[in-house]
Design a protein around this nucleic acid. Sequence first.
RNA 1: GGGGUUGUAGCUCAGUCGGUUAGAGUGACGGCCUGUCACGCCGUAGGUCGCGGGUUCGAGCCCCGUCAGCCCCGCCA
Length: 652
Amino acid sequence: MKLDRLSDFTRSHRNGELRISHAGQQVRLLGWCKRIRNLGSLVFLDLRDRWGIVQLVADETQVSPELLARLKAVRSEFVLGAEGLVAEREQKNPNLPTGDIEVRLTDLRILNTAQTPPIPVDDGSQEANEDLRLKYRFLDLRREKLQRNLILRSETANIVRNYFRRHDFIEFETPILGKSTPEGARDYLVPSRVHPGEFFALPQSPQLFKQLLQVSGFERYIQICRCFRDEDLRADRQPEFTQVDIEMSFVRQEDVQGMVEGLMVELAPLVGKSATAPFPRLPYRNAMEWYGSDKPDIRCPIKIQDVTALFAQSEFNLFRAAADSNGQRRVRGLFFPSETAGAFSRKQLDELQELAKQLGAGGLPYAKWGKEGLASSFKKFLNEEQEAQLKAALEVAGNGLAIFAVGTDDQTSRVLGDLRVRLAKQFGLLDESRFEFLWVVDFPLFEWNDEAQRFVACHHPFTSPHPDDLDLLESNPGACRAVAYDLVLNGYEVGGGSIRIHDAETQSRMFQAIGIGSDEAREKFGFLLDALSYGAPPHGGLALGLDRLVMLLAGVDNIREVIAFPKTAQARCLMMDAPSPVEPKQLRELRIQTEQPQQYRAGVMFFESVPSELQAPMSALRTLTTNAPTSTSTVVLDGEIVKVETTRIPEL
RNA sequence: GGGGUUGUAGCUCAGUCGGUUAGAGUGACGGCCUGUCACGCCGUAGGUCGCGGGUUCGAGCCCCGUCAGCCCCGCCA
């Protein structure tokens, strides 16, 4: 098809903004064909651009046969320039903002054609599977839903910038090519060509740079920056993600929190919510005790109760053993006041138990108060008086379901923390429309790492110990609290920060406590220790996870929905098919030898390096590769020796 | 690293106990249609049942392996 040129055609209006008040105006519009409805001698076309949809119309009594023919040649997703007269519709469409009017075509330019999309671009259609959506992300991103999310993301970033600028923050750019440091997540590494055998690390966060900028005296730092962590992914985690990173000098925890609260109060109205500062502060210890989580969703008020003492004399061995364990193991429970919960079926309870087992529980003891009174997995160990005590402890009034977990605090928190939110949603005990911020504070400074057989920093090794706990740094690290705080929204950690260590001596003690000796500290963090010894101001800050924040603002439960080009759970980009093998020449330049022969992905086929006698079939192989029906990658085989692993090759 | 789940037409899915020629909706293509807006009506084409192996007289269905997507545990200072 011969394409028209854009030439001098300029847009006069945006499609979504046309209203009855424009009636009578000649307009020039641009966009994509969302759908065409051909009634023979009358044709309607919905033209879509970023701002909305407007209906174009042409009928044979009004337009030339040529124009009508050209219009009928249009298919979905063709790119069009349309000229016409805005007119009031004979039959209006109340579902469309532009539904009162239509544009009577006087001219139509076909600026580009389009193949039939492999996935529906229409928001009304059922969403395609996510692997296809990711492969054809550029088409997926045409959908209004994703456009809305990404526009929201842009708005959010804009408000963030303006807010901090207003508060005298200075925006910085810190290096992407940095140094690998011990502790923390696995690094993404970048080999250095000019220094063979040496590697840069992509930043897990700009933590040290922003601290050094405090030492330099900038006092207020902001960066919206990309961070990289080579760890396994989740629905709310990507290998590269964006942080709103801030740092301030001469501040206490409350100063940082107050600054961030002000931002959240400004962001909430973006999506018609409101937030009221100050947000509640909840010590880590209480968060774990009441909610079984360090990022509790307090939209559900139900708290975990300790009922261990009730079973001190019980004949129910499982529970009594915990009561006898001197606090090592406890019996903790949750009560969901709800008729639905009280009517939970045996089957549903079995499914729940399966879930609990996946979370590491041995089983899931329960007590249910419903139409037939008490039903419980340990009913035979409960006399009337004990039942009454249990009801009192769990604050049971009316029907509902109580579930229990036995074990160490870690074990019971994991099970009850998860089920608390899950069941609360199921029973309608959690108002999902609300935004509930809170600060979790007083985190422990260290946690014991079994694998390394040493303490590791909970937050990071630059976090200031609580001033009251400084003496514990050597004597009892496990009991030492940190001046660290997480911002939690609806059960998600959306930010975390701390007051930092700002003197070299404390920093050295900290390194010592996590098993980094003075020599290693000097080698790995010499620049930091130096900086701290040249007049570093007291300072602290926080980093917000922008992706998660926007995800929550957008009301979606997956971070990929607010990222233009996300990676899969296996950290692969299905659109570019990255990562990918590279030319042997590149590897040679970097002095990198791969332990495994490189595998070349070409659609469904895999090739790998082999001895030279197989070099002969190379040209045939390349033909097969490019002709493979599902092949999407360009495979570079130049000079490389390859073999084919699949059974397809013998057909050659 | 481990567990769960999904994979059938371009797309979304159904497919009974293992049994004849694998279906539906939607999309695509062609025809008809002057008020549609998920247009309607008629017709046509469209399948490596993810891939490999096995069991069987016979496999979309059962078994083993494998690849990929998603969710979770470990991991993520």
